[in-house]
């Protein structure tokens, strides 16, 4: 069980960091980009994991990441049934949960503030640090928390592309499935209860923090 906890936390952590890095420029383009129809196409694609059954996503990912697949062929044994494959699958599946809060937050940003920062001689990094991050910091925290919590709770995609290899791709939700299948209800209770409590605490802290601060203060 300890192995499964470590793999789950590691998977959720790596996925959250990767998605935050990937989604920041993506959300910026979605919120403020010029191209109308292309943006709508990408937005719709990003939102697909919200409505598709995880098995559909898992099926296509399995085909892509298998040793003969479009991406998997570039790796010795493919990417399916490996931790890297799990990270890719989790990133695709949790993408809307990270991208959408960031996009919504960037849309509300006053364009005059960006123009002001640029006129004050700030480079892109400084504009991000002094203007975008203080305005949208809460959205980054919300996006990261949602991404993390959603990855912890992922099941279908992981089962499809990760298999169930203890110590490598077996995460808590899959282990729980195993325990129920083998009628180990006591273990299943511990896992299920633990996941409920952890997820609830993450969401509680997020809402509590959002209400308490109403914004994001840098070094105040």
């Amino acid at each position: 069980m300890i192995d499964a906890i470590i793999i789950t936390v590691k998977l959720a952590g790596v996925t959250t960091v990767a998605l935050t890095l990937l989604c920041t420029p993506l959300a910026w383009w979605l919120a403020r980009g010029q191209s109308g129809w292309l943006r709508n196409c990408v937005e719709a694609a990003i939102a697909l994991p919200l409505i598709l059954p995880p098995t559909v996503m898992g099926f296509y990912l399995l085909l892509l990441l298998s040793p003969e697949g479009l991406f998997g062929q570039f790796f010795d044994r493919g990417l399916a049934f490996s931790f890297t494959g799990l990270v890719i699958g989790s990133c695709v599946y949790s993408l809307p949960f990270v991208a959408q809060p960031l996009t919504a937050s960037f849309r509300q940003l006053d364009p005059q503030l960006i123009q002001l920062g640029q006129s004050q001689g700030l480079n892109r990094f400084a504009v991000f640090r002094h203007i975008i991050l203080p305005c949208c910091g809460y959205a980054f925290v919300a996006a990261a928390a949602l991404g993390f919590a959603h990855t912890v709770g992922e099941f279908g995609v992981i089962l499809m592309i990760g298999g169930n290899i203890p110590g490598e791709t077996q995460v808590l939700s899959v282990l729980l499935y195993d325990e129920v299948e083998s009628l180990q209800y006591a273990n299943a209770h511990r896992l299920a209860g633990g996941l409920v409590v952890v997820s609830w605490v993450i969401l509680f802290m997020l809402y509590r923090w959002q209400r308490g601060r109403g914004g994001f203060h840098v070094g105040a």
């Binding site: 004050q120 001689g121 700030l122 203080p134 914004g215 203060h217 070094g219």
Partner: peptide
């Protein structure tokens, strides 16, 4: 480039750096 123009702009409505102290800006 904008950083080398030497223009100081006080925009209408006096926008300031958000969620920071005056001294930080």
């Amino acid at each position: 480039p904008q950083a080398l123009r030497g223009i100081g702009w006080a925009a209408q409505g006096a926008p300031l750096w958000p969620n920071q102290r005056v001294e930080q800006q």
